[in-house]
């Protein structure tokens, strides 16, 4: 602060928490996922993650330098965007395509709209969708960890959901199957989720509602085994790390419930009726766009106030 008396409207709450500390916690929560990715998919996974994080940062830096704005890369939000985007790639993804995704995520989705806090959808998610639409073949060319059991080694578990049995459950949980590098190991993602919840960075409402609604609706839509569906595909990763983004999720608890249930419903519907690839991403993207309206209808009444018409 520059020593001037800054007068702002209430509430005057002081908190030691900064954007930087929150993003640092998210990065720490991502560590188990990153370790699993490197162990399962080799050094190429690490290469993708490092390149993506660095390029995202660089994009933000160059943009802010070019338009003479304050350099904000030290808040780590771009690193988080880059790492999450890389974790959404299959291990064989060409690096230049990933770099294109980073540029789209940081410059088009975030900086063009005014930087962190003004992005209308989650940048990493939008980057993933842009890559998914542009390079569908590369994005769905899922690599399988070399030590996966035969039953799971052909496609992602979602593609063969009908033939999965409970016997495959342990390998699903450990992530011994094909998929993008970050989504395979459910245990690592759950560990990250627990860390984020314990540190108070996210509330478990969105992931819980998301997963619960997906379970319920995929059961209603007649999925063979809804519980296995939760642990295959990008559902958990999306629910924990992408749907909970502060900027693009609702503010109130009831808003978060609507948001989570909406994501779960759309995911289940797309998985049941449209094809499994990218269902989670599109579901979260659509709900991201509805967040302003969810915020409007769940606005809390001020104490003693009249409900706004």
């Amino acid at each position: 602060m520059n020593g001037l008396l800054t007068v702002t409207p209430s509430p005057h709450i002081r908190s030691p928490r900064t954007t930087r500390s929150i993003m640092r916690d998210v990065l720490i929560a991502l560590i188990p996922v990153v370790i699993v990715a490197v162990v399962y998919f080799g050094w190429r996974a690490l290469l993708l993650i490092c390149v993506s994080g660095a390029v995202s940062c660089l994009c933000e830096f160059i943009w802010e330098k070019a338009f003479k704005k304050d350099i904000t890369i030290s808040d780590l939000s771009s690193v988080v965007t880059g790492v999450i985007l890389a974790l959404n790639m299959p291990a064989g993804m060409p690096v230049w395509e990933l770099i294109f995704g980073d540029i789209c995520a940081v410059i088009v989705v975030k900086m063009l709209f005014g930087g962190l806090g003004r992005n209308f959808v989650n940048p990493a998610l939008a980057g993933r969708i842009i890559l998914f639409v542009s390079f569908t073949a590369d994005m769905t060319n899922y690599t399988v960890p070399s030590f996966a059991p035969d039953a799971l080694s052909s496609a992602t578990p979602l593609a063969l959901e009908g033939s999965l049995t409970w016997a495959d459950f342990p390998s699903l949980l450990l992530g011994l199957h094909g998929g993008v590098i970050g989504e395979v190991c459910s245990l690592a993602i759950i560990a990250g989720c627990v860390y984020l919840c314990v540190r108070g960075v996210i509330k478990p409402i969105i992931p819980a509602c998301f997963v619960g609604a997906e379970l319920l609706f995929s059961w209603l839509f007649g999925a063979a085994n809804p519980v296995l569906g939760v642990f295959s595909g990008g559902l958990l990763f999306g629910a924990v790390f992408m749907a909970t983004d502060y900027v693009t999720s609702p503010l109130t608890n009831w808003g978060k419930v609507i948001f989570g249930v909406g994501c779960g419903f759309l995911t289940a519907a797309m998985r049941a009726f449209a094809g499994s690839n990218g269902a989670v991403s599109f579901a979260i993207l659509i709900m991201n766009l509805l967040v302003p309206y969810i915020n409007d209808i769940t606005r809390r009444k001020a104490f003693g106030g009249v409900k706004a018409k």
């Binding site: 294109f100 088009v108 842009i130 639409v133």
Partner: peptide, 15 residues
């Protein structure tokens, strides 16, 4: 192999 598919699609047009 070096094409960016989304540019030929409506979002790319708008962009």
């Amino acid at each position: 192999g070096f094409q960016i598919g989304i540019i030929t699609q409506p979002p790319g047009g708008f962009f």
